[in-house]
Design a protein around this nucleic acid. Structure first.
Lengths: 266, 266
DNA sequence: TTAGTTTGTCCGGTATTTCAGACATAGTGT
DNA sequence: ACACTATGTCTGAAATACCGGACAAACTAA
């Protein structure tokens, strides 16, 4: 209890964790990996068991299987486990299975080197926004956000682009109401957000200033797949005081590069 | 049958695939992911079922669960699946969970930029050698080897370093006899290999010329963990005709950088 | 057309796995 | 010393996940 490894403060905790319920090993594995990703640090088996609501004996069994497969590995002196080498290889295979993704990563690298700013590749995961990859600005003011951490869509510029294909009703159904509340307590009016989405769709880019936090100016441009759909965006995270001429210059660059990466014009 | 999606030509195929044997879902999942990694391309559910020796109905069930979790995703028009977005995130979390790995990757980048050669980060996976990450030479002669593909240890320079802590008897037990046979049919004498391992251990680096293929000169230097053990190596893959002065210069650079990355001197 | 193959789904039975709980051991704090 | 908590392993028993097989639909080839 000294460290709060378990955060049961989740609003939706215990959603269907009725005790005495038997679950499949596969589902346990999925929950375990998601829990580990959310926690972002090695965990002990006991804490994993509590976090995913599984019996300890079952958790040991599963963890040992995954350790054998190197999908997890022991870290630290004892008892802590985290993702293993196999996961790296699976993830690498995912990233490189098509030439398109490789081109995107190269562009990300080039943008970062040329501008010295923080650049991100963003997408959706379920009804949340995630950073898929990033290159942090080398400057002293490092505004970094971790790859893989789920963020409410309305907090982000990219989110406005990624939802451009949805009708207002679909948006209403898709976004959890709680996600309109910003970290500092302010609330975005849904109607305003819907208008932003429509604007982003029309303009082909999106910008937000001091939204998720007070210090950043974000701009995002869409990468379209072969069907014209947007499921990834390229994005700059700038200090809020970046002068307007430079912002515009960066926006043009971002849009041009994203257009180059797109597989359709539309 | 038009494409050979299933390669049952594996020498160890059907090792324990006695029909009528029931297996756990978890084990099926592990086998499935390994199969996908080995195949290195999207596969159809039917082919996966054959490759891992599972009933089709079971395979559909498992694949659908993994699709829901985004650990797999549909690719192409229909029926093909490959690793999904979640895998990328899990793998990314693995790569960055400690500062040490990040430093290693930065060094890899720098070495590649500075020298223009192919640089690799290598390690073991079970009793095979794998490339964990690489930066390919930008030149016209691209000697690339895929991340994650398992290779026989005796074929590699890094392998000789990674086994430095083993006794001759341990080496005998560890290496499958078939792994001494090179791709072109030549056979490495085990005694010679054991001597190489000892030499590499003593020298603190290892070199091989025209071993796994006729065109490459490989050199590897050890990255030691906090206990002095070697579980990763830094490695150059050079064209075989690289002049000796340059080779020596590169070897010095490689050894210096690997030493910098090591957490112990030993 | 027919015959053959593959895909995706569904269902009932049983071999197996998950579960709860106990246990020894180790650590912590008073 | 004590009480308390957590770890890792084992076991019996019951719930159920996996399996085999059947089925319709789609596709191919002759």
């Amino acid at each position: 209890m000294s460290d709060n490894a378990i955060d049961l403060a989740e609003p939706d905790a215990g959603k269907d964790a009725r005790p005495g319920e038997r679950r499949r090993g596969i589902d346990r594995v999925i929950m375990l990996l998601e829990a580990l990703l959310k926690h972002r640090a090695p965990m002990r088996v006991g804490d994993i068991a509590k976090m995913i609501g599984a019996p300890r004996s079952t958790t040991y069994e599963i963890v040992n299987s995954l350790l054998d497969a190197e999908m997890l590995e022991n870290v630290g002196t004892e008892g802590y486990v985290y993702f293993g080498r196999s996961m790296h290889l699976f993830g690498w295979a995912y990233s490189h299975h098509n030439a398109h993704y490789r081109r995107i990563i190269e562009t990300l690298d080039r943008l970062a080197v040329e501008t010295g700013e923080t650049v991100q590749l963003c997408g959706l995961r379920g009804n949340k926004y995630v950073v898929l990859d990033c290159r942090d600005s080398p400057g002293p003011f490092r505004i970094s956000s971790d790859v893989g951490v789920e963020v409410s869509i309305p907090w982000t510029a990219s989110g406005r682009l990624l939802l451009g294909h949805m009708s207002e009703q679909e948006l209403r159904d898709f976004i959890p109401p709680a996600d309109y509340t910003l970290p500092d307590g302010r609330v975005i009016a849904p109607a305003e957000f819907f208008a932003d989405v429509a604007t982003a769709h029309r303009q082909g880019y999106s910008e937000t200033a001091a939204l998720a936090d007070r210090f950043t100016w974000c701009m995002a441009a869409p990468i379209r797949d072969g069907h014209g759909a947007i499921n990834k965006t390229l994005c700059f995270v700038l200090p809020i005081d970046t002068p307007e001429p430079r912002r515009n210059q960066l926006l043009d660059l971002l849009r041009e590069r994203a257009r180059t990466l797109s597989l359709t014009d539309s």
